[in-house]
């Protein structure tokens, strides 16, 4: 890997442009930056008080869904903040499932029996999949709540149990906060916890942590040399990067990817069509994508 000597000024470093091969995945920041909790590693610093992005209204989502037909979008993803804080989320999902498959990224805490039942009806009423991804960052109360906050573990597991009861096989997504040599212990820990909680067929997805937002304080930020340069992309499969096949719609327009909505240069336009232009990988978070490849389809929630 090429290491950039500290003396080269930022403006002289050549960052590559990534163009959009096809808009396969359309994300919606339906929950804005509002969340019922405030996890220590949240890379967009969501919280009950962060209103930089607001909830998306059904009509806003519908406008993008309509525009997505001609473009040939393949999958729709819903994230936040916490999507289930948006009172219109169930209507939004119902509408979307008439267009194509939907995935919701949630912390699961706000899923009550009534919600689970309604989700089951929506899923059964569509030919497309409704995938629910629930974030959990520890297999024990102690490990999870140290990152996600007191009481979160129990509430999340209650949501997961309900989803199971109503026929879902939620994907549990975990941000990696342990060392490589602990992988096996931690994975087994998760599988056990899920089985004990009624998940006979656990599905797990481990994601690298992004060193932006609150994660800077919890763990660390990026080092000076951690960035993507043109030379690094020689022979690299750019289809690994989300920005080569995705965009995210928010209540404030369309941005390049779910990770960078807080970077000014990540705003690409009001419509999907405007947002198909290419994007220069100047941000240091791009370095994590570069290293871990297809971490797509799973961020906050």
């Amino acid at each position: 890997m090429e290491i950039i000597p500290a003396e080269i000024p930022e403006k002289e470093i050549a960052h590559p442009d990534i163009h959009l091969d096809g808009l396969d995945n359309l994300w919606f920041q339906v929950g804005g930056t509002l969340c019922n909790i405030a996890c220590g590693h949240c890379f967009i610093s969501c919280s009950p008080a962060n209103r930089s992005f607001g909830f998306m209204a059904l009509e806003q989502v519908e406008r993008y869904l309509k525009e997505s037909l001609e473009i040939g979008v393949k999958e729709y993803y819903f994230t936040g903040g916490e999507p289930f804080m948006n009172r219109q989320i169930l209507d939004i999902l119902q509408l979307t499932l008439g267009y194509g498959p939907a995935t919701v990224l949630t912390n699961g805490m706000l899923i009550k029996e009534k919600t689970a039942r309604r989700l089951q009806e929506l899923e059964a009423g569509s030919i497309y999949s409704l995938e629910i991804r629930v974030s959990l960052d520890g297999y024990s109360e102690e490990m999870n709540d140290a990152i996600r906050g007191k009481g979160v573990f129990q509430k999340t597991l209650r949501g997961v149990r309900l989803l199971y009861e109503y026929g879902f096989l939620p994907i549990i997504t975990v941000a990696k906060t342990w060392e490589d040599h602990e992988d096996e212990t931690v994975l087994n820990g998760f599988i056990n916890t899920l089985k004990v909680n009624g998940c006979a067929r656990p599905r797990l997805k481990i994601l690298p942590s992004l060193k932006i937002g609150r994660e800077i304080a919890r763990d660390r930020g990026y080092d000076r040399y951690e960035m993507v340069t043109e030379a690094m992309l020689e022979g690299y499969d750019c289809s690994q990067l989300i920005c080569s096949n995705s965009r995210i719609a928010t209540d404030r327009g369309v941005f390049v990817c779910p990770i960078l909505i807080e970077s000014e240069d990540a705003y690409l336009g009001e419509t999907l069509k405007e947002a198909t232009k290419s994007y220069r990988l100047k941000q240091q978070a791009c370095y994590t994508c570069y290293l871990y490849g297809a971490i797509c389809s799973n961020f906050t929630g």
Binding site: L69, E70, V73, K74, G100, P101, I127, Y128, S129
Partner: peptide, 9 residues
């Protein structure tokens, strides 16, 4: 897959 391939796609 059937459940993740929209008609418009």
């Amino acid at each position: 897959w059937e459940s993740t391939t929209p008609t418009h796609f």
